[in-house]
Design a protein around this nucleic acid. Sequence first.
RNA 1: GCCGGAGUGGCGAAAUGGCAGACGCACGGGACUUAAAAUCCCGGGUCCGAAAGGGCGUAAGGGUUCGAAUCCCUUCUCCGGCACCA
Length: 843
Amino acid sequence: MRHEPSSFPSFPIPQASRLSLRYNPRMAEPYDPPQFEPRWQEFWVRERFAATDTAAEKGLYMLMMFPYPSGDLHVGHGRNYILGDCLFRMFLMQGRTVLNPMGWDAFGLPAENAAIKRNIHPREWTIANIGRMKDQFRRWGILYDWDKEITSCEPGYYRWNQWLFNRMLEKGLAYRGKSPVNWCPSCRTVLANEQVIAGECERCGTVVEQRDLEQWFLRITAYADRLLDGLDRLPDWPEKVKIMQRNWIGRSEGAQFTMKIQGREDLPGFEVFTTRPDTSFGMTFAVLAPDHPLVDEITTADHRAKVEAFVDHVRHQTEIDRLSTEGPLEKRGVFTGSHAVNPFTGKPVPIFLADYVLMSYGTGAIMAVPGQDQRDWEFAKAYGLPIVRTVKPPDDWEGEAYVDDGPAINSEWLDGLYKADAVAKATEWLEQRGIGKRKVHYRLRDWLISRQRYWGTPIPVVYCERDGIVAVPDDQLPVLLPADVEFSGVEGNPLERSATFVATTCPRCGRAARRETDTMDTFVDSSWYYARFINPHVADAMLDEGRVRRWMPVDLYIGGVEHAILHLMYARFVYKVLSDFGMVPGDEPFPVLFNQGMIVGKSNITGRLEKMSKSKGNVVAPDALIARYGADTERVYTLFMGPPEKEAEWTDEGVLGAHRFLQRVWALQDVVAGATGRDGERGTDERLRVATHRTVKRVHVDLERYHPNTAIAAMMELVNSISEAQEAAGGGALGEAYETLLRLLHPFAPHATEELWHLAGHEGSLLRAGWPTYDAALLARQRVTLAVQVNGKLRATLDVEPGLDADAAASVARQAVAKWLDGKEVVKVVHVADRMVSLVVKG
RNA sequence: GCCGGAGUGGCGAAAUGGCAGACGCACGGGACUUAAAAUCCCGGGUCCGAAAGGGCGUAAGGGUUCGAAUCCCUUCUCCGGCACCA
């Protein structure tokens, strides 16, 4: 996030003499967090520090990705919530209005699986988990505005999924279509393209099968270009996420044209898409996908047996087999017996089928140019097909297909042109003759949202024998999940066996009709929840336009990089749809995104570092940790482990270090209590004040750039400075240092700092005590260390007044390194103010 | 295979063109203690040297610069994403 330093409200640092005498001069109790942490947790809730009135105010909107309520949280889960809470508390101390809500992505398979296993309703299981997780947040000292809580499995939320679906249906953005889809036999449901990782189900790892089914889709491809272009206007997103989304959308520009089939004027031919129309003269064969609709028509009698065997073989391949690039090409294709006409040369080329041509991309058919495509080259070699180069490779070229730029050859009227010009001319030629046109294709496919499971939002349509597909009218929403279902685990969606649910009447004609039993992908729920947080209780609309216009977009969005494509792409898509409906401002929901890294632990099973999970046996539960060391220790260690965007390993020794630091802070109350009210030794007081103000600056800057690890290091240094100064410093400087430390440390260790603040005689909460500012003038007049280099090597460091000009700095530098200059000539002097002097000598 | 990111002490790391290793962990030494734990103090990149001091050092090699962990090129290793995309 970019805040100007001036946007941080200024709070005067209290006069030290006023507070140093208030300490109770007694030996402090030992640091025992369980003694006081629960008390402060109750206090923060009671005082409603996190409550924000979105109707009355406008402020900063920060958001952590809302979790699936799986039950117990481990220390790895704590990372983003603790980081978020740290920033939230700093914002509150700065006096800013902040919306910081939390809710539950509460639909999903685990609840249904638990239902089958334990004979408990998914809702019960989910609600119980939510209770446990809320309790965990409280024990971490994490504050949310619970008045805004959203639970996506409640009808008050999911009815708006249905309402939005109706709007998208009206606009043609939701449609029912038949296509080969990914089917997970273990989850017994279809999956979106995005949920299939290397041919396996993202959730359970089962190999996915292809099935031809009628399903509901959302037309995300209509927004492909806007999703792509929008990325360029998100400077505060991690580059990595933007690249992943760009690759996923996979825009490619080229030309599409028709190939006629030789001797078959009765057929329309087929379309091919190519990014290299400039190489068309080199086409020596064409390839169709095995499931291309024309296959049957063009297969000649003498090739039919082989073609059918091949098509059958491909159909029975799993996704995994198909992805494998292994295996001889000879077995991966077959000749159909027909020829197509290359429109550029007018000559016939044989038509093959090959498993590497996919019906789901482009037109499901390609022109093959072995001279300029390595895969086509290999195919041509395997089948003894001719190879014609149409781009002149460099003279020293020893490779096979040449894919880079060069002058066109063997291409009649394209000869001599380079790629860009040749592509343009070839495309123009196609357009003029009405054979083809410029065309853009995407890798992105429409979002398949049907799921054959119970625990999700019912898709609000009915099937009527007379009227066909009929949307459930808005005034009959929500379509509720029925209660009369059994979770027996037998094949099929439990909704299909619910008598009350399936049988209904057609909203249009009133006759008997059948209700849709598929439910929505849960990513629909999370694609707009961030806007609902602003007005979670509005009952008669999805969004309260006035409030949403004031509070959207989200100013800071924090979550794991595992959502780089799935959630973040869907949410951007839905936000653009809402934007087109005029319901939200702008067209990007999250202008600032921060991805925290995973916390990993050494697995008991593999012995390697892996993401914490029960199956890896490397889970660290927070409860025992909090009971022994306190929540503040876990928070400080989590924030100190390393930069939060990086992966970090959890170690018990590290926890101990964080705990020792807090103990040292705790012990400082004795140091300050023992100080006198008089001024201390002059130099010591000054040094301590400088250390204090430097720390304020460092913590402030480090938090702004999301580096809590170095902010903690700075505070550790301040603690060391206070300890060193304790004998000689006066109460004023010690008090200032100590109380500033408590304020700075509060977002990191809220419980201990609140307790110490009270032990120091203050009332109220540090959350209202103001965020410290520093005395820039004090820091500016401190002496600086000047490094002196001779020919790039460090030869001296000097302690000097700040602000020396180049001549004065050069002069003291020459004296300091006289022995290195002896008998030599200084030919150049480089001066960096208050940092270094570099002397270049010769001779 | 393609696209990205990262390689710094025994370990987590800091420094993003200007004193490499801040801060912490682990380790070694010392104080306190009958003892241990806890706590406190001191020391740790490496080589030469008694020391002063100096050489070398940020995966490897090269380059740009007065000056490079940081910028550029080549290579290696690890991590992540995509993966027959026409």
